[in-house]
């Protein structure tokens, strides 16, 4: 029943892998440098709803990045130690994140639909389909 309602057309910016993984979503801007632990993927900003949880292996969604350009290196290092997220979904792509995802080989998707940001919940499974340019939310 939710196949059309919970499917969104998105831009695949980095990577073209089919991915199916649980979602971790933040509503505030994220500064990769400072907010994400580069060795564990744990969110270390107390302002984050998922403070203390790890983005490792998840589809990590947040609206937009902020903070230092050194943030790109954090994503690179996360991947290097095998603790990177499966994919990152943002409302608007920025250079820091773009560079970080390319360096780290992390799938990066831009989704500007307000409905996605309204409906998405932690723990939903996200399916990314690069052939059809879609992101599907699967409530659990």
């Amino acid at each position: 029943m939710h196949s059309s309602l919970l499917r969104f057309r998105v831009r695949f910016i980095v990577g073209r892998r089919r991915i199916c993984a649980p979602l971790l979503i933040e509503r505030c801007p994220i500064s990769p440098l400072g907010d994400i632990d580069p060795k564990t993927g744990v969110l270390k900003n107390p302002k984050c709803r998922n403070y203390g949880k790890s983005i490792s292996g998840k589809v990590f969604a947040y609206p937009v990045s902020c903070g230092s350009t050194v943030g790109s290196y954090v994503l690179y290092q996360l991947s290097k130690v095998g603790r990177g997220p499966q994919a990152i979904v943002v409302k608007q792509v920025d250079p820091v994140l773009l560079v970080g995802c390319i360096l780290g080989g992390i799938e990066l998707v831009e989704c500007s639909h307000e409905d996605f940001w309204y409906m998405a919940r932690d723990g939903y499974v996200v399916e990314l389909n690069p052939e059809e340019h879609t992101l599907t939310l699967i409530p659990q």
């Binding site: 580069p38 350009t69 050194v70 290196y73 690179y76 290092q77 290097k80």
Partner: peptide, 16 residues
Amino acid sequence: ISGVSYLTIGDAGLEF
């Protein structure tokens, strides 16, 4: 080139 102090780029930048 900016971002070269170990204080700001840490192990992540060093390894890159």
